[in-house]
Amino acid sequence: MSEIFTAAAVVLVLTMAAGLVRVVVGPTPADRMMGVQLIGTTGIAVLLLLGFAFEMPALADVALVFALLAAVSVTALTRRRVGQDRS
């Protein structure tokens, strides 16, 4: 079974690498952030698959941190503009 999980992880890492195109070309920071979110979500799946392939349940905790992190970085990015700068 662990071969299947590893193979799926390889496929997912390839799609993550393809999604990096959106982080590099943009055009807006929001698009880049969406690319980062995609990496986060796919990374969770990769971590879980690796955790089952290597029989290391501790990797599920890393996946949990990834899930929380996506929320933090999106909230940090979507702050509303405050009055002081460029109207």
Binding site: V23, M33, V36, G43, V46, M56, A58, V62, L69
Partner: peptide, 28 residues
């Protein structure tokens, strides 16, 4: 943004090297 993506990617590398605690610290 690229640095954040880099951090996530490095966490994956640590997970691959069977070091979940380092991966946890790197991600957080």
């Amino acid at each position: 943004m690229l640095f954040i993506a880099f951090g996530l990617w490095l966490a994956l590398v640590w997970a691959r090297l069977r070091a979940p605690d380092v991966a946890l610290a790197e991600a957080a």
